[in-house]
Simulated scan of single mutants.
Amino acid sequence: MKFICAKDYQEMSRKAASVIAAQVVLKPDSILGLATGSSPIGIYEQLVVWHRQGDLDFSQCSSFNLDEYRGLTADHDQSYHYFMHQHLFDAINIPAERIDLPDGAQMDAAAECARYDAAIAAAGGVDLQLLGMGLNGHIGFNEPDEVFSKGTHCVDLTTSTIEANKRFFASADDVPRQAYTMGVQTIMQARKILIIISGENKADIVREAFFGPITPQVPASILQLHPDVTVVADEAAFSKCRDLI
């Protein structure tokens, strides 16, 4: 693992965006695995700036997203389809036909998960996967469990995840109870992984995930086994493992 410490969220976002930008410049037809939530917004803002300045061209890129709420249509303002178009896709030149996310409106979970895994495989796999990490060590919607998940699957969201996401909805009652998510195995098959973490409230799980035992009770801990992982975090998130990095 490579650890990059940033002063704050803004610097973390710039440093992480630089990793993605380098990937696109060196391999213009990169397959990008993208994430949603509050953590990557600063990254996407920086990528848009560089694109508008003429420094980044996404015209040959393809993308797959980590997850999507089951039961939300693509035009729902809290769907991850909507989020990605709002924060990135509508502002860059990535072709629409090369954008793929799980289809939250598809209620046949087995069929949609199989379609998504087949699409990733047909594209040749993900070159660079962007991740965030939850307070319990979840990546995507892969929550603590008895085993590591494999392919794309439908998950029941935990109470803590619903609580964390309720700020995006009118109330906790409006948060969907299920989501489609790439499995841990799918994530681990990406050729490179970039994980971003910000805030003192993540300091305990950063130490546990990256310097503790590898266990499905802390899903992100499996990243210790990946050959090419870059962790970009701010000083607050790294505050409890400065002796280890």
Score class of each variant (00 low, 15 high):
Arg177Asn: 12
Asp173Phe: 01
Leu194Val: 08
Gln189Leu: 15
Val175Met: 11
Ile187Trp: 00
Ala179Asn: 01
Ala172Gln: 10
Phe169Asn: 06
Ala164Thr: 14
Arg177Asp: 10
Arg167Asn: 14
Ala190His: 01
Phe169Leu: 08
Ala190Tyr: 02
Gln178Ile: 02
Leu194Phe: 06
Leu194Lys: 02
Ile162His: 05
Gln178Asp: 09
Ser171Lys: 05
Ile193Glu: 01
Asn165Pro: 08
Lys166Asn: 13
Arg167Glu: 14
Phe169Ala: 06
Ala172Glu: 14
Asn165Gln: 10
Ala170Phe: 05
Ala170His: 05
Phe168Asn: 13
Phe168Trp: 11
Gln185His: 11
Arg191Cys: 05
Ile193Leu: 04
Gln178Cys: 12
Lys192Asn: 08
Ile193Asp: 04
Lys192Ala: 08
Gln189Asp: 15
Thr181Ala: 09
Leu194Glu: 05
Lys166Ser: 15
Ile187Gln: 07
Phe169Gly: 03
Arg177Cys: 12
Arg191Trp: 00
Val175Glu: 02
Tyr180Arg: 13
Pro176Phe: 07
Ile193Gly: 03
Ile162Met: 15
Ala190Pro: 07
Met182Arg: 10
Met188Tyr: 05
Ala164Asn: 15
Glu163Asn: 13
Ile187Ser: 03
Phe169Ser: 05
Lys192Ser: 10
Ala179Gly: 00
Thr186Arg: 05
Ala170Trp: 03
Thr161Ser: 10
Thr186Val: 13
Arg191His: 02
Lys166Trp: 03
Gln185Asn: 05
Met182Asp: 08
Ala179Lys: 00
Ala179Tyr: 00
Leu194Met: 03
Pro176Ile: 02
Arg191Met: 04
Thr186Lys: 02
Thr181Asn: 07
Arg191Asn: 00
Thr181Leu: 04
Arg167Ile: 13
Gln189His: 14
Pro176Val: 02
Tyr180Trp: 07
Gln185Met: 03
Thr186Trp: 01
Leu194Pro: 06
Ala170Tyr: 04
Asn165Cys: 11
Ala164Asp: 15
Asp174Ala: 14
Gln178Gly: 06
Ala172Trp: 02
Ala170Gly: 04
Gln178Tyr: 08
Thr181Asp: 04
Ala179His: 01
Asp173Gln: 07
Glu163Gly: 14
Thr161Leu: 03
Val175Gly: 06
Leu194Cys: 06
Arg191Val: 02
Gln178Val: 05
Arg167Gln: 14
Gly183Arg: 04
Asp173Gly: 07
Gln189Met: 15
Ala164Gln: 15
Thr186Phe: 07
Asn165Lys: 02
Tyr180Met: 10
Ala164Leu: 14
Ala172Asp: 12
Ser171Cys: 07
Met182Ser: 14
Gly183Val: 10
Pro176Trp: 08
Ala172Cys: 13
